[in-house]
């Protein structure tokens, strides 16, 4: 039995929009990406048997649209530096490491109990999304290009005009920020 695509598309639209907004941090651009995705989806001919496979397929289209938009934006704003994001980074570093570069006792990473059980909970994904939104915008963008759009660091360098070593620093900063947020806001309480 085939899905009623038109109504599924409307039902999934808010999720698509959230996904695009998270990465583009620009409501207008996110709206464009989603519209183009919906248009492409309506003109495609293959059928889907479940909502989740349809959604996965839609997200893969949306992902390409987001990459296109990022590509255009970085052409318009060439070699944008990530320096604006640096300030908060020094603060985080000081709260995590002591002078010789070892963990502050209070910041030593803990063992996250049963991540799989967390993935099952809707509340976890709300916290996860909040933590992504908490990252500085440019840092978040590079991280999501890597993790959600599946670009390798070479492609990210090309699209954003930063060097590979800068890219690794930014990704490291993003992961550090994200795991610190998740540990504080989720695993130290609910997950433990």
């Amino acid at each position: 039995m085939e899905l009623d695509r038109q109504s599924e598309l409307n039902a999934l639209r808010p999720d698509l929009l959230r996904f695009a907004r998270l990465q583009l941090r620009d409501a207008g651009a996110a709206e464009d990406a989603v519209q183009e995705t919906m248009l492409a989806a309506l003109t495609a001919s293959q059928g889907f048997e479940s909502r989740s496979s349809y959604k996965t397929w839609l997200i893969s289209i949306l992902r390409n649209k987001i990459v296109d938009i990022i590509r255009t934006q970085s052409r318009e704003l060439p070699a944008s530096s990530l320096a604006d994001d640096d300030e908060g980074d020094a603060l985080l570093d000081e709260s995590l490491f002591e002078a010789r570069g070892h963990w502050q006792p209070s910041a030593r990473p803990m063992r996250w109990a049963d991540p799989e059980a967390s993935f099952e909970q809707q509340q976890f994904w709300i916290v996860f999304e909040a933590c992504l939104n908490h990252l500085p915008p440019k840092t978040a963008r590079v991280f999501m290009m890597r993790e959600f759009l599946g670009l390798d660091t070479g492609e990210i360098c090309k699209e954003t005009g930063i060097s590979s070593s800068n890219c690794w620093v930014v990704l490291h900063r993003a992961r550090m920020g994200l795991r610190t947020c998740l540990e504080t806001r989720w695993f130290a309480g609910a997950g433990a």
Partner: peptide, 8 residues
Amino acid sequence: RFGSGGMQ
């Protein structure tokens, strides 16, 4: 999981 449509 989040990026492949698993987001809630």
